[in-house]
């Protein structure tokens, strides 16, 4: 299981500089708010890192709208907060050679796009979303036999490890979820597939072993699921992954914290 800890640390520490701006239409009063700059962990989720952003902008919107739920947009696309921040960035910028850092994100309070993104009224919605993804991932990997036998305080270690950006706290429990159950493989590999430029996610049952009994490589997996894509490039964590990489190894080392691989296919 997850033996290359150097890679785990490297991915955990991945950060993105973001520049938040309040939507011009929503500025109330004569004073324009300053943009707000933040370094955010790629592995985290926007609602967990945006308290300060909200505090900074809320006083610049119409007092009647200050109680409304804040949401984020990039190039007219509302950002689905239930995806990890790094996935969102890669989805909408990896194709675009012009995407400069810091990442320019527009902040809104009005006109919440309730037909496109989930409501996030409180931290419990993020926790529930995150923990149910972990549970599903363990269902795929071990028929749920690890996650469901963990104690409540162990589940809390996972959640608070993410919340407080504490690698050791998170991995002390997560390593149990990354243990192959029989031999050296998971039953299935938890993968979310995306096409660059769209937040539509597709999911399918992925086996770690190919028909011939050898470990399945990333190239084989993509060929199997996207037969019509010529010469595909596959990204995760902003990195273009070599096709010969075994997906079992990727699942143990390159999954996001929800225990899913999030693969972006170009």
């Amino acid at each position: 299981m997850a033996n290359d800890t150097e890679i785990l640390h490297y991915l955990w520490n991945g950060k993105l500089p973001v520049c938040f701006q309040l939507d011009e239409q929503e500025i109330h009063g004569i004073q324009n708010p300053e943009p707000f700059y933040l370094m955010v962990p790629r592995m985290s989720y926007f609602p967990l890192v945006c308290d300060k952003v909200k505090k900074h902008f809320v006083k610049h919107v119409d007092p009647e709208k200050q109680e409304m739920e804040m949401w984020l947009e990039f190039k007219n696309i509302p950002l689905k907060w239930n995806n990890p921040i790094g996935v969102l960035y890669d989805l909408f910028t990896i194709d675009d050679k012009q995407a400069d850092l810091p990442w320019q994100i527009t902040v809104h309070f009005d006109n919440f796009p309730e037909d496109q993104i989930l409501r996030c009224s409180c931290r419990e919605s993020v926790e529930s979303n995150f923990m149910s993804a972990m549970k599903e991932a363990d269902m795929l990997k071990h028929r749920s036999q690890v996650f469901s036998t963990m104690q409540r305080h162990q589940h809390n270690q996972l959640w608070t490890g993410l919340l407080n950006d504490k690698f050791d706290q998170f991995w002390s429990e997560n390593k149990k979820l990354m243990e192959p159950s029989d031999g050296s493989y998971f039953k299935h590999i938890p993968v979310h597939f995306y096409r660059s430029g769209s937040s539509v996610m597709t999911q399918t049952l992925v086996k770690p072993v190919s028909e011939d009994g050898n470990h399945m490589t990333l190239g084989e997996l993509i060929k199997l699921n996207y037969p019509s894509v010529d010469n595909p490039k596959i990204f995760t964590h902003g990195i273009c992954i070599p096709h010969e990489t075994p997906i079992q190894w990727m699942s143990e080392h390159m999954s996001y914290l929800d225990n899913f691989l999030h693969l972006i296919v170009i």
């Binding site: 689905k80 239930n82 309730e114 037909d115 496109q116 993104i117 989930l118 409501r119 419990e124 919605s125 926790e127 529930s128 979303n129 149910s132 549970k135 599903e136 269902m139 749920s144 937040s199 539509v200 996610m201 597709t202 999911q203």
Partner: peptide, 23 residues
């Protein structure tokens, strides 16, 4: 309640739906 019914993204339509937790 947070482990019973929550809002999630529909796997076919990529839009928000309420969902009874599958477990």
């Amino acid at each position: 309640k947070w482990n019973a019914i929550t809002q999630e993204i529909h796997p076919f339509f990529s839009t928000p739906f309420f969902r009874l937790h599958p477990c």
